[in-house]
Simulated scan of single mutants.
Amino acid sequence: MVVVASPNSMIGEKILPIDLPMIDLSAERSMVMKRIVKACEEYGFFNVINHGVPYDIISKMEEVGFDFFAKPMEQKKLVALDKPFGYGCKNIGFNGDMGEVEYLLLNANVPSIPNDSSNFSSIVRAYTEAVKELACEILVLMAEGLGVPNTSIFTTFITQLDNDSILRFNHYPPKNSKDRDNSHSYNVAFGEHSDPQILTILRSNAVPGLQISLQHGVWNPVVPDPSAFCVNVGDLLQVMTNGRFVSVRHRAVTNSYKCRMSVAYFVAPPLDACIVAPSVMVTPNRPSLLFKPFTWEEYKKVTYSLRLGDTRIHLFRNCTQLE
Rank of each mutant, 00 (worst) to 15 (best):
N255Y: 09
L290E: 01
T159C: 02
Q160R: 15
D272G: 08
V282P: 08
M61W: 00
I138H: 02
M61N: 01
Y186S: 05
L289I: 07
F229V: 05
F157E: 03
P287E: 04
N285M: 12
H171A: 13
I313L: 15
A264Q: 04
A130Q: 08
K77Y: 06
D225W: 10
S183E: 14
L237K: 02
N109R: 00
V32Q: 06
A135V: 00
S204K: 07
Y265C: 02
I113A: 00
A273K: 12
N91K: 12
A80F: 12
V282L: 13
M22V: 09
P196W: 08
A80E: 12
I275A: 11
E28Y: 13
S165R: 02
D181G: 14
K301S: 15
G243A: 10
Y257C: 15
V101T: 13
G309H: 07
F229N: 01
I198N: 02
G309P: 07
S9T: 09
E100L: 10
P114A: 10
K90H: 14
L146D: 10
L106E: 05
V4A: 01
V4M: 13
K178A: 08
T254Q: 00
M61R: 03
I92E: 03
V267S: 07
S112T: 10
T128A: 04
V302W: 05
C259D: 03
L214F: 12
I36Q: 04
L315T: 08
K77P: 01
P111Q: 03
V233M: 03
D272E: 10
V222C: 05
S122G: 11
N187V: 06
L139I: 08
V188A: 00
K175D: 02
M10H: 13
V218S: 10
L25N: 07
Y304K: 14
V53S: 09
P72C: 14
V222N: 01
L25R: 08
F190R: 06
I212T: 10
R251C: 14
C259M: 07
I166W: 09
V48I: 10
S247T: 06
N91H: 13
Y103R: 08
E192I: 13
P174T: 11
P174H: 07
I201R: 00
N182C: 10
P114C: 09
Y172N: 09
V253S: 11
T311K: 14
E74F: 06
F291Q: 06
F190E: 09
V32K: 01
S177V: 15
P221K: 06
R29G: 00
D179S: 08
H314D: 12
A273L: 11
F154R: 05
D179G: 03
L81I: 09
S177Q: 15
M261I: 11
N8P: 00
R312D: 07
V233E: 04
V37H: 06
N109G: 01
N163I: 00
R251S: 08
L236I: 06
A228L: 09
Y304C: 12
V4L: 09
T254R: 03
E42A: 11
N220P: 04
L271S: 10
E192A: 15
